[in-house]
Nucleic acid binder design. Structure first.
Lengths: 178, 178
DNA sequence: ACGCGCATGTAACCAGTTACATGATTCT
DNA sequence: AGAATCATGTAACTGGTTACATGCGCGT
């Protein structure tokens, strides 16, 4: 149920249309919670009928831009959810399955695709480093900025985690030039 | 589509019944690809009708234990999938949404639930460390074992990643004793 | 007037979750 | 015979993905 709360957060930061949100998700928020425009429209519709946001103009017309604003009930719901105890998020990682499968059936040409994956993560890390240099080169003044910095640093760590794991995997796979 | 391949891997290691698989998923494989028994049964059915595995006895009777074995076509499919280029896995992490939301609406009592989360990750890390001491105290001999070790080390790194991120978040949240 | 890009949406599908149903075996 | 447990399965639902449909407004 996090899409709803990601949207509430984005709309509190600034009221917007569905497409605006989709674009913003492609940048900042989307780096840790991706969503397509279809999903966003559907959820906005539900949020409106649940009374969490208001959307103007009201009519359901295609092609007409609609602006969505968070209502009191929406803020309340977001606050409730933030404090609620979060599950530990059951891990589900195809790479681990792949490594294990390679172990079970023998060399199958994994290395090449791991190399490609590694490069994507290196690129993403570089991107995050740029963001950090641009937005957080001096210590952030307010709490909200400090929290955004934590989120960005988490992204960086995450990319480093991937790169390290891929390097270890590649060094094992290289031992019998597969 | 990874459940299918996780099951193929597990069944190549050793033919088994649905419940056996569910139990094994609760231990080793499930640490990086969780699945419930319902899901497993459904997927095994599809895999059989796709000709990837054979299941004896054939009849669909409740209560009667069935053993599943991987067929040639199944091995082939697994091999194909292992080599195939893997997507970069679109990140989707509720914690980041929470942090950002806290930034947007102000203190909302996040710290307590982050503490709880942190403890779970510490516990899991300890568990993995036990596994490592037990199974990999001396350098693994064969390739398959080396790959399993890489997977376990990835799990460890992952828990460390979480703990570090949570510590950073907690230190920011602590600054205004929320 | 028509084509293009902006904007909103529907429909069909797939993977995963939760709750529940039912048959077989074993132990007392 | 009854209870516990092993074992397999169905049904309803939710969140997310892919493909497609439709309407408005602007530039040429």
């Amino acid at each position: 149920m996090s899409l709803r709360h990601a949207l509430l957060t984005a709309l509190i930061e600034k009221p917007a249309s569905g497409l605006d949100l989709a674009k913003r998700f492609d940048r900042s928020i989307g780096y840790f919670w991706s969503a397509t425009h279809q999903q966003i429209y559907k959820e906005l519709g539900r949020m409106e009928s649940d009374g969490l946001i208001e959307s103007t103009p009201e009519e359901n017309a295609r092609g007409v831009k609609k602006i969505h604003r968070v209502l009191g009930k929406g803020r309340q719901e977001l606050k409730r959810w933030v404090a609620e105890c979060g599950e530990p998020a059951p891990l589900r990682d195809p790479l681990m399955v792949r490594l294990r499968a390679e172990g079970a059936i023998g060399p199958a040409g994994l290395a090449k695709s791991l190399q490609a994956l590694r490069e994507e993560h290196v690129a993403k890390r570089a991107l995050y480093q740029e963001f950090e240099a641009r937005d957080f080169s001096k210590a952030p003044s307010d709490r909200a900025a400090a929290l955004r910095h934590v989120v960005l640093k988490a992204g960086l760590k995450h990319e480093n985690y991937w790169i390290e794991v891929l390097d270890e995997a590649l060094s094992v796979l290289a031992q019998d030039d597969d």
